[in-house]
Write a protein that binds this DNA or RNA. Structure first.
Lengths: 108, 108
DNA sequence: AGATAATGCAACTATCTGATTGCGCAAATT
DNA sequence: AATTTGCGCAATCAGATAGTTGCATTATCT
């Protein structure tokens, strides 16, 4: 379990994505989170641990409860990858436009 | 290997993300793709298979070569999840704004 | 037609992953 | 002070995953 954690690997699991969406609207403690799912508390706890390890979640201790909330900045890593990807694709489309345009000209 | 494939799981692997970025700028055949990485042809071929299984890649046979290119639509699945996520977060911030605003009013 | 090149596919293996079980510790409740 | 509650941590296990090796298939080249 001491594997290097990565945001992309973290969101690969559907339960973890659900946890992230759940915590997006409010900070929650592990027990409360676990009640939202059909898995055990320990299973959810492990997911939380993984999400925390890669900085997607932050802890906040309140008495004996630990509230977890989203670290929005970290999600940007995924967002940026997608953006980079889309940027390259769009460049492609633009070049395609140029090709189509030059073909039109040739036909004249 | 007959597990259900999922876009999020597909992009969890760094090599697969690299393949996607590589193919974003141009369609390529497996051998050419493999030359860009330090892994074997078969390993890359497996990644391509996984990416194809979940519709991130499309095949195009040209003679004995098979060119793979990106299916842009599928990337949107990830993009949409991120968008949904950000939307919820922004709603939170807006609500926070409201709270701060009402606190200001109370102080008057 | 025979050799070579480009791939896919199947078997096998080491490692990783998600889930369960059991334990221990600190905070809150009685 | 004793009990309960909320939680993390370690061990364990079945299933998944990435990579290697070897072989079969089809297209191109000589």
């Amino acid at each position: 379990m001491e594997t290097r954690r990565d945001v992309f690997q973290a969101i690969a699991d559907p339960t973890r994505r659900a946890i992230l969406l759940l915590l997006a609207s409010q900070a929650m403690a592990p027990n409360a989170i676990a009640e939202e799912f059909h898995t055990s508390r320990q299973a959810v706890s492990k997911h939380i641990q993984i999400l925390t390890e890669c900085d997607l979640l932050k802890q906040e201790q309140r008495g004996r409860e630990i509230y977890y909330h989203i670290n929005g900045n970290k999600i940007q890593e995924v967002d940026q990858w997608i953006a980079q990807f889309k940027s390259i694709l769009e460049t492609q489309f633009n070049q395609l436009d140029k090709v189509l345009l030059s073909m039109k000209k040739q036909n004249k």
